[in-house]
Write a protein that binds this DNA or RNA. Structure first.
Lengths: 153, 153
DNA sequence: CTAACTTGTGGTTAATAGTGGGTAATAATC
DNA sequence: GATTATTACCCACTATTAACCACAAGTTAG
């Protein structure tokens, strides 16, 4: 088990006790080394991002390469770490997301979970809708830049 | 097994349990590495696009090269994966297409399946008809541009 | 021409997934 | 240290999905 790629979109809801189900498909995609654990943190947008424990360890390695002498580096590192929380899911596959993250993402009950290959995003449906109309839009320039980027690697 | 090219057009129907048969011809065209799995996602038009698992893995590799730090990259990656779903077909060669994709493509029961060499399109017959009269039309200029494009590669 | 196989379609049963709730353990508060 | 709130650990229910089995029409092979 563990092709380790997350795809697709799901609409779930947080129950009265604050538990959120992670799609079984995503849990199955986890490698054994992730031992039933996801790491959640703030996203760049108004959402929550979820990594496998493995992926998070990679991110940590990346952060270690930054210089603590540079203000921007410190800020970035701090921003990336301060909200990161490892969450082990229960026997039903649910996790309890910290309230500060829920607040940040404007989530109360309803939730959209989006698979992003190597990470997962959790959105409030309304906020997601707003972003779709604005920030998600890509113009021809963007596309071209992305095309170049992938070709050059 | 696996010339991996899909050609021809088929008219099938989705049964009461939401199962859609994939033409045997297309299933046979799959390489063994695709292990009885297709990946379905939204098309650019009002339809569903189907890739072989192999082809999808290529796409994934490309997406993995993008940076999660850049807004445009995230948006592109999100758009590409949100609706992508790997579907293993049952012993009869049928798949269960997610309802959100069916809705997007305006499909209820009747379906037209079109082989497109390296991918497959699934259309609602009526919608396909409408598109044939408009968006599918090519003028001389289009053809000329295509000719140039293929020569330059 | 007949027999064996393939193909598209239909249904039945068993397993899984998502959701809800109860109780014990743990942590926080006074 | 007692009380309350929070979290972890079970157990339960329902709908959906997956795994089988079946069959008729059409093809292919002998």
């Amino acid at each position: 088990m563990g092709t380790q790629t997350f795809t697709g979109e799901f609409r779930y809801s947080i129950d009265a006790k604050g538990r959120l189900n992670i799609p079984a498909k995503f849990r199955k995609a986890l490698p054994d080394t992730s031992e039933d654990t996801f790491v959640v943190t703030r996203g760049e947008e108004e959402n929550i991002v979820v990594y496998s424990l493995d992926k998070w360890r990679e991110k940590e390695q990346e952060l270690l390469m930054l210089s603590s002498k540079l203000r921007a580096h410190r800020a970035y590192k701090r921003q990336a770490t301060r909200f990161a929380t490892p969450l082990k899911f229960d026997s039903q596959g649910r996790v309890m997301i910290p309230t500060n993250l829920l607040q940040f993402a404007g989530i109360d009950k309803e939730v959209v979970i989006i698979g992003m290959i190597d990470e997962i995003e959790i959105w409030d449906p309304d906020i997601l809708g707003r972003y779709e109309e604005t920030e998600f839009q890509l113009d021809a320039e963007d596309i071209e830049a992305i095309d170049k980027y992938t070709r050059s690697s």
